[in-house]
Amino acid sequence: MAKILWLNWSGGGNLPPSLGIARVLTERGHAVAFAGRPEMVPRVEEAGFRAIELTQAYTQVDLYPQGTFLTRMSCYLTSPAVVAQVRSVVASERADLILIDAMFPAALSEAPGFGCPSAMVCHTFIFRQLEMWRGMIARLDKMRQQAGFEGLPALDDLWRTRDRIIVTTLAEFDTEPVPGWEMVRHVGPVLEDERVAVAAELPWAASDRTPLVLVSFSTGFEQRMVDKLQRALDALSELPVHVVATTGGIVGPDELVAPANAVVLNYAAHDPIMKRAALVVTHGGHGTAMRALRNGVPMVIIPGLAGDQPFVAAAVQEWKVGRALPGDADTAAMKSAAQEVLSEPFYRRNAETRANALAGVNGASNAASAIEALLRPAEARRLA
């Protein structure tokens, strides 16, 4: 059995697949603990794993540029106080291997001194959006420097020096590999549900032939957009469809005016809904898009604030499995796109073709195997 420490960014699309990989590692006899910001702790403990709270997550937040959704995020991901606490936690845990989220420069910058193998985990495309990734890490670091601290290394120095980069998407869905990135391993999507996502009882019989539309935007509080959800509900209100909207706990159902053809839920398992769905209206999170494709369901994507969402939207349009709209799309544009995707059979056929590529792919198991391959040398050294 190996001890594995996961230095985590608990974003909406990051924590659930991380928990899925940790579940498989645990089933194989390893002990996995997560260290992360306070918001992460109850979610990790609910999933049955040990959680270590990084209590210094926001102690320096007042020094960071204010007035942006990135303020708290950047403080947690880059601040010297977090760097120091990461160093302390790693020393006390004495893990055999460290896993680090791709979004966590404070932890990645310390990895060369950990004294054990380290792997980075990226929960969306890597090569499709490599320049975006470079820009995002640079933007976070710029905010650190504006807070008065010395800059961190650039993305290439943070990422390419890891023993392995595990990417939870299919290689064939990403673009061609870039020379010098041979440490990258595509393992396939990890579509894990958190325990709050239970099967929902819908008000329409399974035999009802009316097309069903799932509306689901981000579960990250930084991307809370009540008006966007309302526009989507309004757009679908006059169409001959049933609508299920899930808010992920960041928007209260009572904050929305649900039309007669819709139900709004805080949480619900998406797979049972998608098995009935004719369309998914979503923000372009990689996990939701891959889940829709695994079920052969076309999409309308209205990207949110996360950097990868426009790239997921562009891929969906490139593959002709749905329509991509601007992030500020109005009700009329959403309605028109939904009508088009529902009425044109080729969108569904193309989505079903993508489902064939995902059939039988177990991203969590593949990721666990890639991690165990790094553990073997470490275990050998420990037993010597």
Rank of each mutant, 00 (worst) to 15 (best):
I4E: 01
L5K: 03
G11T: 09
L15G: 02
L19E: 01
R23Y: 01
R23M: 09
L25K: 04
G36Y: 01
E39H: 07
Q56K: 15
D62Q: 15
Q66G: 08
F69L: 08
T71P: 04
T71S: 04
R72D: 10
S74I: 04
C75V: 10
L77T: 07
T78N: 07
S88Y: 03
S88G: 05
V89G: 03
A95S: 13
F104Q: 02
A106V: 12
A106M: 13
A106H: 03
L108V: 08
G113N: 11
C122E: 01
F127S: 10
M132S: 09
L140H: 13
D141G: 12
Q145K: 13
A154M: 13
L155S: 05
D157L: 13
R160K: 14
R164T: 11
A171F: 08
E172V: 15
P177E: 12
P177I: 08
R185N: 12
H186D: 07
V187Q: 02
G188K: 02
L191A: 05
E194F: 07
A197E: 13
A200E: 06
R209E: 07
T210F: 07
P211F: 09
L212M: 12
V215Q: 02
E222K: 10
A235P: 03
S237W: 07
D254M: 06
D254H: 12
L256D: 08
A260W: 03
A262K: 02
A269K: 11
K275F: 04
A278S: 15
G284D: 04
G285R: 05
L293D: 00
R294A: 14
M299N: 08
V300H: 01
D308P: 01
V316H: 03
P326L: 06
P326A: 11
D328A: 09
D330V: 10
D330G: 14
A332T: 08
S343H: 10
F346T: 06
A357H: 02
L358V: 03
A359K: 09
N362T: 03
A364T: 03
A367L: 02
R376Q: 11
R381F: 14
R382D: 04
